[in-house]
Design a protein around this nucleic acid. Structure first.
Length: 890
RNA sequence: GGGGUUAUAGCUCAGUUGGUUAGAGUGUCUCGUUGACAUCGAGGAGGUCACAGAUUCGAAUUCUGUUAACCCCACCA
């Protein structure tokens, strides 16, 4: 066997570090990721959800991109013209906050730097993290078309943004308005409704009394925010509220400030809440703002952009809003205005970025009218043109769009797409333009200045599926790859992103942006908590890749959970995925070692195939069919699990074991060649099945395994066609009978504590005679795998031997003669337990089979199945009983 | 206030149109290393499928209600 030794040059242990980088470079250098427009091929395109350049990728991105890469690789192998666009998102507010944080550490601010210098710093940041992100995506194995990499603030995207903004403006769908908006005092900008997180907090309800002018009567109001009293310009009650009927129209004296304010009636007020009278502060509350509009109340702004009190707050001017509240409550108490305080739980809005409390403020902002955009977006999903997977997210999407309000798109930030609007200092006109203006189009004055604000990040992300293909140019790419096939993303950005892409896609791309929205959940830590920086429980995907390999991480991420649900990260699960990779590695190693010096061109004829060969071919064909079906249903985890199951539990545990006799038999090279042929046939095709899931290890092995030499990489090989002709129920049934028999013998031997290496006789009796020739021919299987020697096939109708352990499988009774090795007492107790169990089952089935309803209504097939089952149990029970009798004799 | 998800073995989760003795991984226990793999193999123990009803010949699976946990949406001061 010396010549065998030299072939053993494959490392014994799976070591992903030794080949992952190499293969990625090979793929990339050969442009296997790149797609050219090719009208002859069916397109399958995706755009990456562009990661924010705020930092590096986390585990959620790893999951997101693994799912996409599986879909892309699968379709590429199926012959589609696949294009997957990479890129990053500038993530305005988030990135700006990061860079500002860094400046703070350096002891400076963006205001000190100035706009231009500040933006330079952000671009530096962008390059640093953008590069890191692209490195991470490569490490993961993502087969992205790097020649088409984009950034939401590159030239093309900027053009697209401007085109969309101007068209919407021209259509009247974008307007500027002075409105109450959600203001984050820390980020110092307006934010949209969905950027506000509502948190229920324990607060107070302060009851205050306002004097009715010219009387000693008081009206008691209740408020959660006493500091806004300085901005009060009215008090409202419900029109039908009897308590206040006589007072409507009267004037009240606002305490502290001593302003005269009207008491009026408005339907909005809920008479059951508080005292039924509401202080109205139009400048600082959205509802009050609306009431103020209806009743022409003055808006008095008393809290500033940074959360400090303004001049209207009198002596409290300059004080922080919460300090002011504290001091003011004290004053109200001292002056007798405060009647009572109650505990009150209420929802308070917080900035989703920095978590400070939102201050509703009146300011001039740009808005997008949503109604006409939302309608087609709802319709596209309702009609099924766009499908959510899993389906339940449809409802969430539709419900949101049906209740949508106008979208505030301007941000008082510096990092982002500058709003293409210019104001003329001379004539006062506002001009919106596709090109940068240097003079006022109305009065030709040169004294114009551009709007200082930038657009909400999601305004540009919403254009991603078509701007990345060259829109607004009508490019060939756009024609071939738009609409994209599938969008893969987390459920957390359905509103932020998915909905906006659908609206913008329909409006400007003239079609839906994608056919499927494949939603996944969050990756949490082992305790189910969200991974976050502040908790310090985040795990860097690259750390996992460095330790265990990208294939391991990928496989771990996509198995063990169902689409749309959150999953937990466990190192144990990583190890388990690694073990699978190692198993595959070693199975391949076994084959490759044996392949040394053997004829790779050998082709067996039909009669060469053994039962095991035909069985594994049948199982393989079935696996191809099932895996393909599941991939088409987006059941990626299930598909992955099936491949693992096939490789480990069928190919390795049974088939490889059964080939050993042939491979080690030097006398019969033809048998050995046949085994090797089937081994490599199945392995090579199984690698292809697994490739989308574990691209690196499959390539590394595939390159060594016999394959079509005209194909240079597994990633561009064909997806295995399910050769359903190989699926053979009879063969599988025969093999199953043998495998079950082997398991039973192993069981029996373990029960009696037979020495592992010691072969012993096994006698078989057939209740299904057709199995006899199968066993006759394959006795060696039982010898190899169950230490059964000799295997004695009892004549039909033979009595069961005495003093033997008995086992029953479908069609076969198995006897293991006892050679005085057993503990009689222990065995008897065990048998009694088993008999009870069987009797219980028999009772259940007898009851079922004597139930007339069942006999009448259940399909005949099912009834027959139950009868068969019952018979099986009865036989088994009888054999248990006879064994007990035998035991008694010992 | 509305909507959703989840509840199955010690732990993490499968269980797709109702018919299984309810599965896997991991952990645990017993046994086993002379050629693929101890990152392994063989075997065992371990579950009243949250609870209560209903539909059905038959329910982990369908329906109703209850409980618990989590999440999303929401302008009640």
């Amino acid at each position: 066997m010396a010549e065998q030794e030299q072939g053993n040059n494959i490392p014994k242990v799976y070591n992903p570090q030794s080949f992952e980088k190499k293969w990625y470079k090979f793929w990339e250098d050969n442009k296997f990721f790149h797609a050219e427009v090719d009208k002859r091929k069916k397109p399958y395109s995706m755009v990456i959800p562009p990661p924010n350049v705020t930092g590096q990728l986390h585990m959620g991105h790893a999951l997101d991109n693994t799912l996409q890469d599986i879909l892309i690789r699968y379709h590429r192998m199926q012959g589609y013209n696949t294009c997957w666009i990479p890129g990053c998102d500038h993530a305005g507010i988030a990135t700006q906050a990061k860079v500002e944080g860094k400046l703070r550490e350096e002891g400076t601010t963006r205001y000190e730097l100035g706009r231009e210098k500040f933006l330079e710093r952000v671009w530096e940041w962008k390059h640093k993290f953008g590069d890191r992100i692209m490195y991470q995506l490569r490490s993961l194995g993502s087969s992205l078309d790097w020649d088409r990499e984009r950034f939401t603030m590159d030239e093309g995207c900027s053009r697209a943004v401007r085109e969309v903004f101007v068209s919407l403006y021209e259509e009247g769908l974008i307007y500027q308005g002075t409105r109450i908006t959600n203001w984050c005092p820390d980020c110092n900008t307006a934010i949209s409704d969905i950027e506000v997180e509502h948190v229920t907090e324990q607060g107070h309800l302060w009851h205050l009394r306002y004097q009715v002018e010219g009387t000693d009567q008081y009206v008691e109001i209740a408020t959660t925010r006493p500091e806004t009293i300085f901005g009060d310009t009215g008090v409202a009650v419900h029109p039908d509220d009897e308590r206040y009927k006589d007072l409507v129209g009267k004037t009240l004296i606002l305490p502290i400030v001593n302003r005269r304010i009207p008491l009026f009636a408005d339907e909005y007020v809920d008479p059951k809440f508080g005292t039924g009278a509401v202080k109205v502060t139009p400048a600082h509350d959205p509802n009050d703002f609306e009431m103020g509009q209806r009743h022409h109340l003055e808006e008095i702004k008393v809290i500033g952009n940074t959360g400090k009190m303004l001049a209207g707050a009198g002596k409290y001017e300059g004080m922080d809003r919460y300090e002011c509240r504290k001091a003011l409550v004290k004053e109200l108490e001292e002056t007798g205005v405060l009647v009572s305080v109650e505990e009150h739980e209420h929802a308070v809005g917080h900035c989703s970025r920095c978590h400070s409390t939102i201050e509703p403020l009146v300011s001039k902002q740009w808005f997008v009218k949503m109604d006409s955009l939302a309608k087609p977006a709802i319709e596209a999903v309702k009609s099924g043109k766009i499908q959510f997977v899993p389906e339940r997210f449809t409802k969430i999407y539709i419900n949101w769009l049906e209740n949508i309000r106008d979208w505030c798109i301007s941000r008082q930030l510096w990092w982002g797409h500058r709003i293409p609007a210019w104001y003329c200092d001379d004539c006062g006109e506002t001009s919106v333009s596709r090109t940068d203006l240097t003079e006022c189009p109305h009065c030709h004055s040169k004294h114009i200045h551009q709007d200082e604000d930038v657009l909400d990040t999601w305004f540009s992300s919403g254009l991603w599926p078509f701007e990345t293909f060259g829109w607004p140019e009508q490019t060939e790419e756009l024609r071939q790859f738009y609409p994209t096939a599938t969008l893969v993303t987390g459920y957390d950005i359905i509103f932020f992103w998915v909905a906006r892409m659908v609206m913008m896609g329909l409006k400007f791309g003239k079609d839906i942006p994608f056919h499927h929205v494949f939603i996944h959940g969050l990756v949490r830590d082992s305790q189910g908590r969200k991974m976050s920086k502040s908790l310090g429980n985040g795990i860097d995907p690259v750390e996992v890749i460095d330790k265990y390999g990208a294939d391991t991480l990928r496989f771990m991420l996509i198995t063990g959970n169902t689409p749309g649900n959150d999953m937990r990260f466990y190192w144990e699960r990583v190890e388990s995925a690694r073990n699978f990779a190692n198993k595959l590695w070693n199975a391949s190693r076994y084959m490759l070692m044996n392949l040394e010096g053997f004829d790779r061109n050998f082709k067996p004829v039909k009669s060469d195939y053994t039962l095991a060969d035909r069985w594994i071919l049948s199982r393989y064909a079935r696996t191809v069919r099932d895996v393909t079906e599941n991939l088409d249903k987006f059941e990626l985890g299930e598909a992955g699990r099936m491949i693992e199951d096939f490789i480990w539990n069928e190919f390795c545990d049974w088939y490889i074991e059964l080939t050993k006799a042939r491979l080690y038999d030097k006398e019969n090279p033809r048998a050995k060649n046949t085994a090797l042929y089937v081994l490599s046939y199945v392995l090579e095709r199984t690698l292809r099945l697994l490739h989308p899931f574990m691209p690196f290890i499959t390539e590394e092995i595939w390159q060594k395994v016999p394959h079509d030499e005209s194909v240079r990489s597994i990633m561009i090989s064909d997806w295995p066609a399910g050769d359903e002709g190989c699926i053979n129920d009879d063969i599988e049934a025969q093999m199953t009978a043998i495998m079950e028999t082997i398991k039973t013998v192993r069981n029996l031997r373990a029960e009696v504590g037979a020495a592992p290496g010691k072969h012993s006789e096994v006698m078989l009796n057939f209740t299904a005679e057709e199995l006899r020739p199968v066993f006759a021919e394959h006795q060696s299987y039982l010898t190899t795998l169950a230490a059964a020697e000799p295997v004695t096939l009892l004549a039909a109708g033979a009595a069961k031997p005495e003093n033997a352990m008995t086992g029953v499988v479908q069609g076969v009774e198995i006897y293991l003669p006892l050679k005085g090795l057993i503990d009689v007492e222990k065995e008897t107790a065990r048998l009694q337990k088993e008999r009870e169990k069987l009797q219980k089952e028999i009772g259940r089935l007898e009851k079922k089979l004597s139930n007339e309803g069942f006999l009448k209504k259940a399909p005949a097939q099912v009834v027959a199945g139950e009868r068969e089952k019952l018979q099986g149990y009865q036989e088994k029970c009888a054999s248990v009983e006879s064994r007990m009798q035998d035991l008694a004799k010992l």
